[in-house]
Computed example of a mutant assay.
Amino acid sequence: VYLLIPIRPSPRPVVPPLVYSEFGDDDELSPQWTSWLIPMFVVANVIVFFATMSVNNCPQHSQHCVARFLGRFSFEHLRDNPLFGPSSQTLEKLGSLDWFRVVEKHQAWRLLTCIWLHAGVIHLAINMLSIVFIGTRLEQQFGFVRIGVIYVMSGMGGSILSSLFIRNDISVGASGALFGLLGSMLSELLTNWTIYSNKIAAFLTLLFVIVINMGIGSLPYVDNFAHVGGFLTGFFLGFLLMARPQIKWLERQHIPQGRRLTSKYKPYQYILWLLSLALLIAGFVVALVLLFKGEDGNDHCHWCRYLSCIPTSRWSCDSV
């Protein structure tokens, strides 16, 4: 006797919803790269610093060097450089950011070379530790090409804004590039908002870090214009380079053929992409035109000087 046993179609496997952690570290579907560019940037900065100290050769021109046992690598007197580093003359000779040389002497290359120079060991250590902490994770998530573009472009954006507002001092450091990485983290969180869990906590934490660092930048002798310029550049680049596909696109192999998605990204991500591209291009073009026309940014924005230095009873901001 044959029994007729109804055959039920196998149920479609249930796919658990894909949810990113607050910064995407637990996303198994996102490719993971080995971070090598950020370590190379750190090594390059350290090598440049040693080369700077070698060129500086403090014992050759001063009897008051710090740590003279280091020979030509000894530091300038702390009265001249409290960060344990070279003289300002050496930094200027090797490519520091200087408005007069950039605009009047047509040395535009200083907009890039200055981000590889540092004023001292303390300056170098703070920047490099921060870059490793922030940049390594970003490179693992998004690859060396995108993070490299953000790093260099943000450094240049910071240099341009700094040159527009600061004329009487030289500026060095990778802080503009570092703040660009911070800015890209913020825009990456915003453009991928719908796929994150713990998004509010991540947003508030990141915002707190940014505000604290911007606040530190308002102290004297800290070039906060480079920080702001780098941050804005990285912020817009984050929308351009860090948008993640919507979750249903990543799960498309489990969606019936007739219901396949036609768009990899959400509409708001395309809108943010277009706005960021337009603002980034316009910002760079306008800033470069104003810079090389010799315009002083302070003439067009009288309150902007307070972005870089807030005068108090303990210090003044006359040099800004």
Rank of each mutant, 00 (worst) to 15 (best):
L78S: 11
R244M: 05
S313K: 11
G180Y: 08
T194V: 12
V66G: 00
P39M: 06
L4E: 13
L307T: 12
F69E: 13
N81L: 10
T52F: 01
N168T: 12
V209L: 11
F239P: 00
F236S: 09
I7S: 14
F133T: 11
I210M: 06
A287E: 11
I255H: 07
S171F: 00
L277N: 05
G215L: 07
Q107W: 08
L111E: 02
R8P: 02
L272K: 12
L124S: 04
F75Y: 10
I5C: 08
A44C: 14
V48Q: 09
I281Y: 03
E22Y: 15
M53H: 05
L206M: 08
G157I: 02
L94R: 04
Q269H: 07
G155N: 05
G24M: 00
S308V: 03
T194N: 14
P220T: 07
L117M: 13
D296W: 14
P6S: 15
D318K: 08
G155F: 04
D27Q: 11
D27N: 12
G95P: 01
G85T: 06
F203L: 15
E295D: 11
A287I: 11
E92R: 15
P256A: 00
F165A: 07
L277Y: 09
L29Q: 12
V42E: 03
L232S: 11
R8V: 15
Y151M: 07
S21Y: 02
W109M: 07
C58I: 09
P82Q: 09
V228H: 10
P39A: 02
M153C: 12
F179I: 00
V48W: 04
C309Q: 01
V152K: 04
C309T: 06
L91R: 05
H302T: 14
I134K: 06
Q246W: 00
Y221L: 13
I38M: 06
K93Q: 14
L83K: 00
I38R: 03
Y221D: 14
D80K: 14
L181A: 02
